[in-house]
């Protein structure tokens, strides 16, 4: 074999380089030369993918609509009756119909959750042969997208953003085996984790055995740093008790079909609940002139402090209670701390 020694040497060098890169990247943070190499390639490829992806999306849509035609048949029949003039076009509009459905789903989502997702198109679907379920969308940091934002499609959870370039972002889809999201069954306080399993259905593991989960129950996101709360994930299709009897697992049919994606939305602003302020110790609020209510419950050793007493009384009531009680016994012990007024 010609020059096989040299070729073998180069092979070993290449394999070692590849494995060194893997080892370096395995524990690497999101900084450093490897991350910038990755980001550089992403930044170069992003716009190209955007252009090629949108050009190819019409083809992709038409093809993506194919397996869904069956489920549309009944819908199509009604549409045909209603829209006689569209009869001839419907067959060629499977792709467009798909897009309309997706937009409809998103608008419904906006209607019932109040979220304002940033609309985006899927321009690429993750590289093959690495068993990952990712998609690239045509919005990026220029559109206000950041990593770890909730992405929705139709009217349910699609995934979260992972790598964000200037004009494109990568989305980790719910089917990915590393995808996990906290979920709650509607109407119950069940807490659990929904996990993706690639081409197999999602599962939802419940921490508690008490909450009742039935077939057909709807699963919503619980809400976390990453995921906006209240986003529908899917419906329960079956429940199996785990052999360990301390948890239960349900299979979930997600609302989103990750194999036919086009229009998606990125939730850039998670829902704000009522503004919250930290709790304060009881009694700091009211003025000293307000008559303190006679306490029904004995609070034990009551820390009383006159306004002239130690100013630390409000800060550390237990520490100041004994000296203030001995030095200046209060005539009317109040259950509340009297605040120091300047």
């Amino acid at each position: 074999m010609r020059g096989s020694r040299r070729v073998r040497l180069i092979l070993i060098l290449l394999l070692l380089t590849a494995f060194t890169l893997t080892a370096l990247d395995y524990n690497a943070a999101k900084t450093g030369p490897l991350a910038s190499l990755r980001k550089g390639i992403d930044t170069v490829f992003g716009p190209v993918q955007r252009v090629v992806g949108s050009a190819a999306s019409s083809v992709g849509n038409a093809l993506g609509g194919l397996p869904r035609l069956g489920s549309y048949q009944s819908d199509n029949r009604k549409l045909l009756e209603e829209n006689g003039r569209l009869k001839g076009q419907i067959a060629s509009m499977a792709g467009l119909q798909c897009q309309v459905d997706q937009l409809n789903g998103l608008m419904h989502f906006v209607g019932y959750t109040g979220y304002r997702p940033v609309p985006a198109h899927v321009v690429a679907v993750g590289p093959a042969s690495s068993f990952e379920w990712t998609a690239t969308i045509d919005v990026g940091s220029k559109d206000g997208i950041k990593p770890a934002m909730t992405v929705v499609a139709y009217s349910g959870l699609l995934g979260r953003t992972v790598d964000v370039g200037p004009s494109t972002s990568k989305v980790l889809l719910i089917a990915d085996p590393s995808f996990q999201v906290g979920g709650t069954i509607i109407g119950q306080s069940s807490l659990g984790v929904a996990v993706g399993h690639g081409s197999r259905p999602m599962t939802y593991s419940l921490a508690s055995t008490r909450s009742i989960v039935r077939k057909g129950d709807v699963l919503l996101t619980t809400g976390s740093d990453t995921y906006a709360p209240g986003v529908p994930i899917g419906t329960v299709t079956s429940v199996t008790p785990d052999t360990n009897a301390i948890s239960r697992t349900a299979t979930i049919a997600p609302y989103v079909d990750v194999s036919a994606l086009d229009l998606v939305g990125v939730i850039t602003e998670p829902a704000r609940t009522a503004p919250r302020t930290p709790l304060r110790p009881l009694g700091v609020g009211p003025s000293p002139t307000s008559t303190p209510c006679p306490s029904a419950i004995n609070h034990g050793p009551v820390p009383t402090a006159t306004p002239t007493a130690a100013p630390t009384a409000t800060v550390r009531p237990t520490a100041s209670s004994s000296p203030s009680a001995t030095s200046s016994p209060s005539p009317s012990p109040s259950p509340e701390f009297t605040p120091t007024t300047p």
Binding site: L14, L15, T17, A18, F19, T20, L21, T22, L24, D25, Y26, L34, L37, R38, I41, D42, F45, G126, P127, S129, S130, E132, T134, V162, D163, K170, L172
Partner: peptide, 15 residues
């Protein structure tokens, strides 16, 4: 290139 465009560690598909 494929590694850089995916979410797994660099160098795995290269190898």
């Amino acid at each position: 290139l494929a590694d850089a465009l995916s979410v797994h560690e660099l160098g795995r598909l290269a190898l």
